[in-house]
Nucleic acid binder design. Sequence first.
RNA 1: GCCUUGGUGGCGGAAUUGGUAGACGCGCUGGAUUCAAAAUCCAGUUCUUUCGGGAGUGUGGGUUCGAUUCCCACCCAAGGUACCA
Length: 1000
Amino acid sequence: MNYNFQEIEAKWQAYWSKNQTFQAHNNSEKPKYYVLSMFPYPSGAGLHVGHPLGYIAGDIYARYKRHKGFNVLHPMGYDSFGLPAEQYAIQTGQHPAITTETNINRYREQLDQLGFSFDWSREVRTSDPEYYKWTQWVFIQLFNAWYDQADDKAKSIDTLIRLFEKEGNAKIDAACDEDVPTFDASQWVNFSKKEQQEILLKYRLTYLADTEVNWCPALGTVLANDEIVNGVSERGGHPVIRKKMTQWSMRITAYAQRLLDDLDTVDWPQPLKDSQTNWIGRSEGASVTFNVLDGSDAERSRSAEAEISTKPNQPYQIEVFTTRPDTIFGVSFMTLAPEHELVAKITTSEQQAEVTAYVEATAKRSERDRMADVKTISGVFTGAYAEHPFTKEPVPIWIGDYVLASYGTGAVMAVPCGDQRDFDFAKHYGIFIPNIFEGIDISKEAFADKAKTVIGNSDFLNGLSYKEATSKAIAELERIGHGKGKINYRLRDAVFSRQRYWGEPFPVYYVDGMPQMIALEHLPLTLPEVEKYLPTETGEPPLGNATDWAWDTKNHKVVSNKMLNQVQHDSHSELDSESHGGVYPLELNTMPGWAGSSQYFNRYMDPGNTQAIYSEDAIGYWKDVDLYIGGSEHATGHLLYSRFWQKFLFDMGIAPTPEFAKKLINQGMITGTSAFVYRTTVNNKVTFVSKSRIKEFADYLVETTNGKESDLRPEKYSALQKIHADVSLVNASDELDVEAFKIWQPDYKDAEFILEDGKYIVGREVEKMSKSKYNVVNPDAICEEYGADSLRLYEMFLGPLEQSKPWNTAGITGVHSFLKKLWKLYVPFMDPDSEKGALTGNEANPTPENLKTLHKTIKKVEEDIENFSFNTSVSTFMICVNELTAQKCDHPAILKELLILVSPYAPHIAEELWQVLGHTESIAEATFPKFEEKYLVESTKEYPISFNGKLRFKLELPLDMSKDEIEATVMAHEKTQAQLQGRQPKKVIVVPGKIVNIVG
RNA sequence: GCCUUGGUGGCGGAAUUGGUAGACGCGCUGGAUUCAAAAUCCAGUUCUUUCGGGAGUGUGGGUUCGAUUCCCACCCAAGGUACCA
């Protein structure tokens, strides 16, 4: 009776599928528990061994919670919109839906093979119209909402309209665009419909705006900040430039403070919270306005404009944001970003040429150049001066590219004595550096230590600390009308438009340029067919290629664009569809990748619902995710946007909680071992050189040795032949054949290779698994050779879940032989002729040793699972099976409990052996064994006896011995006397049940 | 630069309130079994040693009877972020 894992695994996977063992129900007597693993993008490459790590951990926890009597929701789906399928479509003409379907089928096969307890009846796919209908629906909800900062929550746009009708917008504290004009109730009602819509658009939580975006010409699309790495696109590594476009945006900034505050309410990893905190980037300070002085040139340029200006006597004002209003008397110049709108207006004629040249030069430099070149100081004086709000002294206004247009107001008040960048700039251009700090030398560098700050040379701020001076400065600024306390966030509103085909279409059509939403009952608005997936010749997004992409508002359906031309002809300002046939152009952009993933966790609760995103009953029951597992790379993308949508839906009364996931765990990455490292001496320096071309080298060796092209001796290739078979088999101590290497890489033929212990050492370099690095390990081959249970155990055994670790297939034999040992314990029950058939086997009571081993294991495994320390529980199983084997344990009562403990980790073998013991039901719902302390009670303890903290020998003593008795016994012991050699100990520390330490 | 996490044998890693450092597994060494191999089983495996012992958890200090664990300073690695005013 051998452990035939292939047969067993296929059998139980079929059983679970047929019996729908893991289907969750939306109501139950049991308490609920929702375990979620982040759903994958189904790529063409399929799964590699790194992918399932988080799924296995989630599956163990889900199965454990079922044993613990919970009604567990453990769903899976696919984030199936995305760029790779689209690019494949561009190259081959294959519709992305077909590619996606093929890939999903492959993923499903691979996932099934690993024995996950997913409830597949709840599967979602973001590219399925029945799913993205609800993504479109959320978009409409956001469109129909505004953010009331007074109540700190989102509200229906209707409430805003009623406020406008009643009192105009002067008193409304809303998160909105900056350029909203002030109006009263009578003005509002007299605005045309289009004017009203334009104003409302500035308040909506998703809005259209001309945004400076990251445009990637090679991909023909806009990218979000988190899709750009080091100035190039994350996918493909193409250059990215800044460009102004009309785009949909999400007003996530309205939620900045709540996104920050509520991090305290969730049990998420600290690094992830920190990274969201940094991303939101709250800083406290003040906004200060400086009036631009009427210099002769500034005056002249302005008077030319004065003819059309309604307020000719109003000076230009520069608003700055500063975190150090306490240092305001240290201002000796101001710097504007070259892109700042006032630059053109205030520059004097003498400086005009120089300023224009600088602005043009900056605009040409890509973001990447500017980043690579942070040390060069550059700037130009505009010739204009501003007036210091307190001293009324003139302050020269400069422009410089160290000031970013996209942060704060794009202008800074420069305090060279308190800010190193201002200091460097002032030194470079010989600008005066006033010192406003008591007892601080600022001749060499700026002083920025807030804690040690005492203000001087600052009129009413003299002698004050940072804190006192800050609040006093703000109070004075407010009094004289030159500023106020302000909190600034780094977080920007999220651009929501992409110029792609394979994404959710917006449920939007345009009437006279104003966006209109398609009603829910007419959704989903499905993607149109297009002939090609590239932008149109006129530069429109791929949807511009569709022939049927216009909205017929009478019949509520998509119609041919031909209808449109006629309509657009006589389209005028009013929004009455009757007057021009009722056919309008549809939005050509699609939604970004994160749209579909921002609510999927809630949709799983009620995935088949056609009337609502989910029923109140379903979300009332499941509420939120109890445990969410996924990669840390989603920290500032998916996880931030999802929190934002959840808070919005919470405000609107659609979601019951402001946070969607109580606990989150980031699984580490499983890296591949791909390169080798060899040492060379270049210029008498030992250098490590690494190459990701190990496979090529190995191939080369096989070719040359088989083809007899060289006189290389095959016996020298041991290490490299191993490399050819499997990179993970290489040991650090394997020898490198230097001669072969030099022939392969002539660049190194003169390099001197250093011997280490008489060998040239082959090392390994750890990298992310990827196709191009020849280091992908595929789970299918491992399942074939060792089985899914072995793979599951091994991935857990590799190390702590949250840690990144290199994959090395070699160690899998350890867990595989553990499973074989486990199997052997049950062999006596497999022979139908044996006396020990099934549960009627050994009726004698289990021995104390058996019980001790079992209960020790129960305790440890339960603690480990609760702490997500899955690697240590695998060790515990090994110890348990080793002990029971040594004890020749054949008590069904013990063996049965052991199976339940093992089943979350290795479910197939557990089911099979469970059946061997005579059970007819699945082990999935079996009750988790109860730990009983009484089986672990000991009467004696092997005390470690240490001298000055160093262990010297051990002594077995009864546990009920008193402190004094222990001391007396230990002191009287011959080994103690031998250690002391007649000396009298200074002190004897006895901790009963733990240790004895003799200080001499 | 800043933030975060980490640094323990040849390797992955264990040590949960400060109390026997190196559990468990891989690898390696020796042995049993076998015609032989695979598989399996047994023993050993931190380093060093004059076989008494000595040293040892990135480095240097500190607290303590006792520190991988707590405190201070530093070094290194990984991840995040950055002219953020």
